[in-house]
Nucleic acid binder design. Structure first.
Length: 877
DNA sequence: TAAACGCATGGGC
DNA sequence: CGCCCATGCGTTT
């Protein structure tokens, strides 16, 4: 397929593949081409490459630079698109031979949909030209006929723009064949006038006014709850989609931008993210995640461009002997050739090695729908040694249009260990969740009560409960899921599952649960530790928790769901002034915020109410590129320190700082790593408490200053202290039982060292979970109960110290809160704080982990003495 | 009789 | 309730 001929009436231009590459014609998505000579698309016309996609909300026309937004669907701009061949259907979210509007979230489209009406509709688009009834570009479609179509109902609650009446109808339901797009659901719009638009050359398009359809608005009284939810959540959905889109692949970008660059070099064209057509319509689980490298491998040295289409995790039946691979309907209809007969078509698909496979692409009628399958895949599956759980990817090589099949073995997932599970179960903290991966911007999750519910079960159900209640269906986020009982194995990604497990496993592959899985490379990319997740967890606005008891443990329950905030970076300046830095979602500039501002998951400059001067994306960065670089670098270092294994592995020479370093050392058994801090400033506190830190240590005013606190004071500091006390009590119980158990087993059999190892191992367990138990260390006189808890301090000999730590913690925790506070001089809840002499990034306080682990003592009042690392080391040893 | 085929069923959402 | 899709299962080859 080296050339194409424009089918548009008098044009007849022949366009070669070289033409496409040169930008004379744009090879579009699907199986279509656009004639650059006449501006018309032919075959299945697809306009998507005429537009650079901008996030999810709008596109910029490459020809006229016009910004098309959702409103265009009801404007003349829409008609332009329609004239090119169709529009996306809101019901199936496919394209009626044209995906120019595929960037518009379907829910948004619905908002602009006109109501079903008894109007004379005309079918727009050249692709309908063969339709006999459409020779005059007008087809009368009776209401009753239309109403058979399912798409109608989507628009039934919409009012009609008097000028540009538009109606989406289900093509299939109308009157049978409309040629190659027979099955497609497509758009109709009223009036002949639309057909007179944009038949000329491309430049005419520039004259079109977007003319956002003021006449069309969503009506109230949506009857169908499903429709309602879809409609009402449009913005949310769109926003979520925007935030959670996978990183664009460069290769994909070249698909449209390379050609267009040449063609439109003098135009204001922003480089689009590689939102290939259809991505917005497809379920995220089908979004291709092929890497640039993989794409490069496929394309080799050729001039071809690989456009990732979709992917699928193989189910048991896909990988089984039947040799049928069930294709996601939306993907099949969007990317594979249209088929009208169940027998379908033979399809040649080339694998990454260049071998060409012959499959039968067909469908089975299924209810009133279809089920698409690729038949004859067994040889291919076997050749590639694929099995259930592996992923096959489908791409298209342009301009040839050849289908390419790749795969990704599910070989590198990291199952949860039993120790991790049990540690999670034992942690006893209400909102702990084992995050295997989360994108940096997180969306709303379910309510706290859901989490609490989940706590009632074992660890595994808890995890799955949480997973399943994370409303992240539109996100590119997956959650490690564990089996609900028994082995707690990581179903779905077992390398060599036993036959006995086959069935159970297969149920967890694909299907609904597959969205809960995540490839390991994704997990790495999206790695977010439990601590970091805590950083991002925000209490709901105006949250007032009620305390509930579950299994003798108190939990704060919130009415509103918790919110995941956007990740920010905390810094401090020479003056000691603390800042929080946040990156705008739109312009990616970093803006300064006060430290105490809790930001939502999405944040743009416009939200910068704290600094009106910088509340616009147009305002330049406050920081120089170098400063930003340093900011990010330090933040990355801090992050790295939080993940011991990564830290150890990737930066063997990196001198981790503070407690993190010691925790790291503890968890990896390297006690020689001292707490020397390169990035932190001089402070009498542990280096972890650098200026800007918002932990309880640092949020308290300097000693002797600040207000005295009453016992029932509800200020942040007091609440935190009280909360810690509670946690301490909980942990006391836990550790006591652990200790008793360990001692019962080992007292007479093991020397101290070995016994200490037991406790040490429990700490290490927690460290594996991101619970830096090693941070909490107690030194002092156990017998008198005047233990001085310095959680800043990490003695060199972790093991011996942990023994003291446990006992002292137990003792301290057994005291009444008042005693506790009093004993530790905390009635005034003040602390000494020194600021650094340089501006540094600081780790964000970890609401549960660190703050709960520490006790007020450490931060405390100076008279008990604030034992810091150096001192503590000698004390403890 | 087994494999292939075509459709039906049902869980999950 | 409708849709998707994994897979079951009866029929055909």
């Amino acid at each position: 397929m080296t050339s194409k001929r424009c089918m548009n009436g008098g044009c007849g231009a022949t366009l070669s593949a070289e033409d496409w590459r040169r930008g004379w014609a744009l090879r579009s998505g699907g199986f279509a081409t656009l004639c650059d000579k006449c501006g018309m698309a032919y075959e299945q016309s697809v306009f998507c490459d005429l537009f650079h996609q901008k996030e999810s909300g709008w596109r910029e026309c490459l020809l006229c630079g016009k910004r098309l937004h959702c409103g265009c669907i009801a404007s003349k701009s829409l008609f332009e698109l329609l004239d090119g061949g169709g529009v996306q259907c809101i019901s199936c979210m496919k394209n009626s031979g044209l995906s120019g509007l595929s960037f518009i979230p379907s829910e948004t489209i619905q908002e602009f949909l006109p109501q079903s009406s008894q109007r004379v509709l005309s079918l727009a688009g050249r692709s309908l030209k063969d339709e006999k009834a459409n020779e005059d570009s007008n087809v009368r479609v009776d209401e009753d006929v239309i109403s058979k179509g399912k798409a109608i109902q989507l628009g039934k609650n919409m009012e009609v723009n008097g000028q540009n009446n538009m109606l989406l109808g289900r093509r299939e339901s109308l009157s049978g064949s409309f040629g190659h797009i027979k099955r497609e659901q497509m758009a109709f719009h009223a009036g002949k006038a639309c057909l007179n638009i944009s038949l000329g050359n491309s430049n005419q398009r520039t004259t079109m006014e977007p003319a956002l359809s003021t006449g069309i608005r969503p009506s109230s009284g949506v009857e169908d709850g499903r429709d309602q939810s879809r409609s009402l959540s449009a913005l949310q959905q769109a926003q979520r989609a925007r935030h959670l889109l996978p990183k664009p692949s460069k290769t994909g970008q070249t698909f449209s931008s390379e050609a267009s660059k040449e063609m439109l070099s003098n135009m204001r064209v922003a480089r689009p993210p590689a939102e290939g057509r259809g991505r917005n319509q497809l379920l995220p689980r089908y979004w291709p995640r092929i890497t640039d490298q993989e794409l490069q491998q496929i394309s080799g040295d050729s001039n071809s461009t690989i456009v990732p289409l979709f992917e699928k995790v193989l189910s048991a039946s896909d990988a089984g002997r039947i040799g049928r691979l069930v294709l996601p309907k939306a993907c099949a209809e969007a990317y594979f050739p249209p088929i009208s007969q169940p027998e379908g078509l033979p399809l040649k698909i080339q694998d990454a090695k260049g071998k060409e496979w012959h499959f039968q692409f067909r469908f089975w009628p299924n209810n009133n729908s279809r089920m698409y399958v690729l038949e004859g895949v067994t040889p291919c599956i076997q050749s590639l040694q694929l099995q259930a759980g592996d992923t096959v990817t489908f791409s298209r090589m342009d301009p040839e249009g050849k289908l390419i099949m790749g795969f990704r073995k599910a070989t590198n997932s990291v199952p949860l260990q039993d120790s991790q599970i049990s540690a999670i179960a034992n942690a006893g903290l209400g909102n702990e969740t084992f995050f295997s991966g989360v994108t940096e911007n997180l969306s709303i999750v379910s309510g706290y009560s859901g989490l609490l519910q989940s706590l009632k079960g074992t660890a595994a159900p808890r995890l799955s409960y949480f997973s399943e209640h994370l409303n992240l269906a539109d996100s590119d986020v997956s959650w490690q899921k564990t089996d609900t009982h028994g082995g707690r194995s990581n179903d779905g990604f077992l390398l060599q599952p036993s036959l006995a497990q086959e069935k159970k496993r297969s149920r967890n592959i694909g299907g609904k649960s597959k969205r809960l899985h995540m490839d390991n490379d994704d997990a790495l990319e999206l790695k977010l530790s439990w601590e970091e997740a805590q950083d991002l967890l925000r209490p709901p606005p105006s949250a007032k928790p009620s305390v509930v008891m579950i299994e003798d443990q108190e939990f704060e329950e919130y009415e509103e769901p918790p919110v995941f905030g956007k990740r920010t970076i905390f810094t401090a300046q020479l003056s000691g002034e603390q800042d929080q830095w946040i990156q705008c979602d739109d312009c990616f500039k970093w803006r300064r915020l006060p430290v105490d501002v809790l930001v939502p998951s999405n944040w743009t400059c416009a939200d910068n109410t704290c600094d009106p001067r910088r509340s616009s994306c147009s305002v330049p960065d406050e920081l120089s590129p170098t400063e930003i670089h340093n900011l990010l670098r330090q933040d990355a270092e801090i992050k790295m320190m939080r993940t011991p294994s990564i830290s150890k592995q990737n930066t063997p020479d990196f001198e981790a700082s503070g407690l993190d370093a010691l925790a790291t050392a503890a968890s990896i058994g390297d006690t020689t790593n001292q707490a020397t801090v390169s990035a932190s400033a001089t402070t009498t506190k542990h280096p972890r408490h650098r200026p800007g830190c918002t932990c309880i240590v640092c949020i308290q005013p300097p000693s002797g200053k600040g207000p005295k606190h009453h016992p029932n004071c509800t200020c942040n500091v007091c609440l935190t202290v009280k909360r810690r006390f509670k946690t301490l009590m909980l942990r006391k119980k836990k550790r006591q039982s652990e200790r008793e158990e360990a001692e019962a087993n080992k007292r007479l059999m093991l020397p101290w060292g070995a016994k200490e190892e037991i406790e040490g191992s429990s700490i290490q367990k927690e460290n594996e979970l991101g619970i830096d138990a090693g941070k909490a260390t107690v030194v002092g006189d156990i017998d008198t109960g005047k233990g001085k808890i310095d959680l800043n301090c990490q003695p060199e000999g972790l093991q011996s110290s942990s023994r003291v730590s446990m006992m002292s913690l137990l003792h301290v925790a057994s005291l009444p809160l008042e005693n506790y506070l009093k004993q530790n001089g905390l009635t005034s809840l003040t602390c000494e704080q020194q600021v650094s002499s340089s501006s540094v990034t600081v780790p964000q306080a970890m609401p549960v982990d660190e703050s709960e682990e520490r006790t007020p003592d450490e931060e405390g009042s100076g008279d008990e003495g604030h034992i810091c690392s150096e001192t503590a080391k000698s004390d403890a040893s």
